[in-house]
Nucleic acid binder design. Structure first.
Length: 858
RNA sequence: GCGGAAGUGGCGGAAUUGGCAGACGCGCAGGCCUCAGGAGCCUGUGGGACCUAGUCCCAUGGGGGUUCAAGUCCCCCCUUCCGCACCA
């Protein structure tokens, strides 16, 4: 018997898999497909054992599904555009491409050494023109349909990265990547019209029943649908002493979800950034003082203001508007707690029924007018604006609300919104927190936006035949100036496709999330240079059956992808509603209680682990030690335990090879077996049942491994009893198999082969090697997954616990198919039970067949 | 503040439908085998009590409840993690 030597085994099988292209697939109509995908990688440099965890999870599922007869697409690629490459280029005075390609080469080697079963022939990197050409094509299709548009907007500017960020990329007021506090900036920007699909994106969530609820909740919150009404308050003229800046009558439009409280609106409040603020300042008696106060609010830390950490402050503009429902004038204030980016940037304040408004009113002595009275119980006093100490936001009956007085809040809001529409002072509406997706980035290392600016013709799409607009090679990266592309005249200067006159290219590049929001379709047809993908191929493979990735993409990537899925559907290129049927968000890998990361200095390099223990040990350890969704605390001793287990498997299988080789397993059904043999068969079939269910549909990889460990433990006991290797005592008796019965050989053979097959998704190299040594040629990648016989898996004797008043008192060993009556009688006759029932009245005996007996005494 | 998930031995974690709590592994202890053991194999390992071959009690964050039966279902509270955060 030779020792378990992972290195030679792993190299041997990795070479063979590649040479025989065993993981490459094509469409096979009529054969069930399975699209297993892990989120592709940003090539940041070196992957650590935390990065590779999800690749290993995906590999277990892919390999298992392959054995179950599915045509499995399991591709990999690179999310290769992005800032770090550019920053590294600035630092090293090199080119982002160089840095990126080197990292890809290294990380690909790491994944290949782990034996992940990717269809490498479909690999691509998004920084290749053959990929981003289709980004540009997609952009133009959207531009044609008005789903991509340009407008001047206040955007989130990250001074650290010197670029714009989408709302989704601002985390706690800072840049999601570098953490620098973002600042507002006015720029012409490109947007994708995600709001067009806001309702669809929200409703679709209800059908994503194989996604973690956490992700669904986050998406619902992010979309932030809110039903309410827009109401216009006409602005009254400024005092005659101050000339109006212009004579247009103006209105302030507010969004409210509580139009039923509008009779209690005692002022209207504008955000400091509201469009009317400047005009009001100009028309104020002391414009300078007015502007100074506004400026104070605008200067307040944006983050803190958004997070409500700043005290509510405001001032009266001196202007009034008319409440369209009461006809009475109410003052207009400007306050720091009103957000310009939500709704209309103006609100009506109803202090009696909104806590924020209440606090504001109390601070500045504004009236608190109660217009909703709750259902009073008994003699509770009705609400009084003068004495309340908090707003009442609950349900009730409208009071002092004109013709609406007496209505219930249940339907008043909808009714009054319609009334506003009838009077032409407002309308019912739905607000979303979700905004259109700003995709302009003032950086080099991304997809150039294929638009040409012509002074005569305006925005002109680059003609399709001119795609791709390739990134020019930039000689040197300095990090100076706003947009690298804008500094390259050869790139910028072009001619208008429409009038042939001189024109300028757009110099913004696309947010890299555009690249990553449709790459899964490209895998289906990765080398197509005629179109983004052949819809027929995507029809075969999509949607993705199993998608694995980090929960950090719960909002950004997964909403953008769901959005582009709908765009492709409208383009007639896909026919499914949702791109990802099932989503698994894997947990992080920690070491010493903190997330493994280069900056924390606690990373473990997979290559070092492979050098010490082999890839199979690393794979098994990460699959076994925690469920996929949970965090995994890295321990060296745990890893050694996994190595020990594989050594145990190796010794077991190689030792019994001569015994089981050629054993007549197909005769098992007719053989007469003794108890020990039946027990092992039962364990084998029970293990097949458990492992199969644990992998699919449960994806409880850790319990699947423990079931296999149990099987191995039982096999060791069986071998010891039957004087077989690998036990030391047996080994001393020599390797002769003469004493081994045909029954033993058959039962053992069945168990060993099932073990090797079921372990193979976890530790494929080891299992391939063992499978070959068991006498099978041709590899096991597509060998059928073992099936179990429920009759064999069922125990013929079972242990039934007996409780008295819910406390365990005895155990009965009985035939599995025993009747309830027998169980009941046997339980009552048990001495250990009788000692607790003697002298008492048996009130009830609960018998659950095959589970337990509970005797209730009083 | 709102929403979500979770809380089980010394540790990682099991427990598909309410039915023997602690599978499997790590660690620890003892034994076998050995020149040796940081290899291998076997055994033990939630806590406590006692009349210690055994028996009994307690135990899944805390407290109530439903039930013959609760880690699992319901209510209240505590803690941790995550998400959203003045969204009108």
């Amino acid at each position: 018997m030779t020792d378990y030597n992972p290195h030679s085994i792993e190299e041997k099988w990795q070479r063979r898999w590649a040479a025989q292209r065993v993981f490459e697939v094509t469409e096979e109509p009529g054969r069930p497909k399975f699209y297993c995908l892990v989120m592709f990688a940003y090539p940041s440099g070196h992957a650590h054992v935390g990065h590779v965890r999800n690749y290993m999870i995906g590999d277990v599922i892919a390999r298992m599904k392959r054995m179950c007869g599915f045509n499995v697409l399991h591709p990999f690629g690179w999310d290769a555009f992005g800032l770090p490459a550019e920053n590294a280029a600035i630092k090293n005075r090199s080119h982002p491409r160089t840095w990126t390609l080197e990292n890809i080469a290294h990380m690909k080697g790491q994944l290949q050494r782990l034996g992940i079963s990717y269809a490498w022939e479909r690999e691509f990197a998004t920084c290749e023109a053959s990929y981003y050409k289709w980004n540009q094509w997609l952009f133009l299709e959207m531009f044609k349909r008005d789903l991509a548009y340009r407008r001047r907007a206040t955007v989130n500017w990250c001074p650290g990265c010197a670029t714009v960020l989408a709302n989704e990329q601002v985390v706690d007021g800072g840049c999601w990547r570098c953490g620098t506090a973002v600042t507002p900036r006015e720029l012409e920007q490109w947007f994708l019209r995600t709001t067009q699909y806001a309702d669809e994106l929200l409703e679709g969530i209800d059908r994503l029943d194989e996604w973690p609820t956490k992700v669904l909740t986050m998406q619902r919150n992010w979309i932030g649908r809110s039903e309410g009404a827009l109401v216009r308050f006409p602005v009254e003229p400024a005092k005659p002493a101050v000339p109006a800046v212009d004579d247009d009558p103006v209105e302030i439009e507010v969004f409210t979800t509580r139009i039923d409280t509008i009779f209690g609106a005692t002022c209207v409040v504008l955000a400091p950034e509201h469009a009317l603020v400047d005009r009001f300042a100009a028309e104020a008696t002391d414009p300078e003082a007015f502007r100074r106060r506004v400026q104070q609010f605008r200067a307040q830390d944006r983050t803190e203001r958004m997070m409500g950490a700043v005290e509510k402050e405001g001032f009266d503009t001196g202007r009034t508007v008319v409440n369209p429902f009461t006809g009475r004038p109410v003052p207009v204030w400007i306050a720091n707690f009103v957000l310009v980016q939500y709704g209309t940037g103006a609100v009506m304040a109803v202090p009696a029924h909104d806590q924020r408004d209440f606090e504001f009113a109390r601070k500045y002595g504004l009236p608190v007018d109660v217009v909703i009275q709750p259902e009073t119980e008994g003699d509770a006093a009705p609400l009084d604006g003068a004495t309340m100490d908090a707003a009442y936001a609950g349900p009730g009956t409208l009071v002092r609300s004109g013709e609406f007085t007496g209505r219930s809040t249940d339907d008043a809001a909808a009714f009054m919104a319609r009334a506003a529409a009838a009077r032409d002072v407002g309308r019912p509406t739905v607000q979303f927190r979700l905004k259109d997706w700003g995709i302009s980035r003032q950086r080099y290392w991304g997809t150039p936006i294929p638009i040409i600016h012509c002074d005569a013709c305006g925005l002109q799409p680059v003609p399709y035949e001119d795609l791709p607009v390739e990134l020019p090679t930039v000689a040197e990266f300095t990090g100076q100036g706003d947009s690298p592309l804008a500094q390259i005249p050869e790139f910028v200067d072009t001619s208008c496709p429409s009038c042939q006159g001189p024109a300028r290219r757009e110099t913004d590049t696309m947010d890299t999330f555009v690249d990553s929001s449709w790459y899964f379709y490209r895998y289906c047809d990765a080398s197509n240079d005629e179109q983004a993908f052949d819809p027929e191929k995507v029809r075969y493979w999509a949607p993705i059956d199993f998608y694995i990735g980090g929960v950090e993409h719960a909002i950004l990537h997964l909403i953008y992808s769901r959005f582009l899925c709908r765009v492709f559907k409208d383009l007639g290129m896909v026919d499914h509603d949702e791109p990802f049927t099932r989503l698994l968000t894997q947990g992080m890998v920690l070491r010493n209680g903190v997330v493994m990361s280069k900056s924390k200095g606690n990373v473990v390099d997979p290559d070092q682990m492979i050098a010490s223990y082999g890839a199979d040990t690393l794979r098994l350890y990460e699959m076994f030690v925690a469920p996929p969704e949970k965090e995994l605390e890295w321990t060296d001793t745990g890893l050694e335990g996994s190595f020990r287990f594989l050594t145990r498997v190796w010794r077991l299988v190689t030792a019994v090879c001569p015994v089981v080789d050629g054993a007549p397993q197909n005769g098992l059904g007719t053989m007469t077996l003794d108890d020990a043999h039946r027990a092992l068969r039962r364990k084998t079939h029970e293990s097949i049942r458990r492992v199969s269910a644990d992998l699919d549909p449960r994806a409880h990889l850790n319990t699947a491994v423990s079931a296999l460990m149990e099987l191995v433990n039982d096999l060791y006991v069986f071998c010891e009893r039957h004087a077989l290797a690998p036990h030391a005592a047996a080994a001393r008796q020599g390797t002769s198999t003469d004493h081994v019965s045909i029954q033993t050989r058959a039962v053992l053979g069945e168990a060993i082969e099932a073990l090797v097959l079921m372990l193979s998704p976890f530790t494929p190299h080891l299992c391939e090697e063992l499978w070959e040594r068991l006498g099978h040629a041709g590899g096991l990648v597509t060998v059928a997954w073992p099936t179990f016989d429920p009759e064999v898996a069922r125990a013929d004797e079972i242990v039934v616990p007996v409780q008295v008043n819910g406390k365990l008192r005895a155990r009965l060993t009985v035939p599995a198919d025993v009747s309830e009556e027998f169980l009941r009688a046997a339980a009552l006759a048990e001495p250990a039970v009788q000692s607790h029932t003697v002298g008492k009245i048996v009130a009830r005996v609960v018998v659950v067949r095959r589970r337990l007996v509970n005797i209730v005494v009083t």
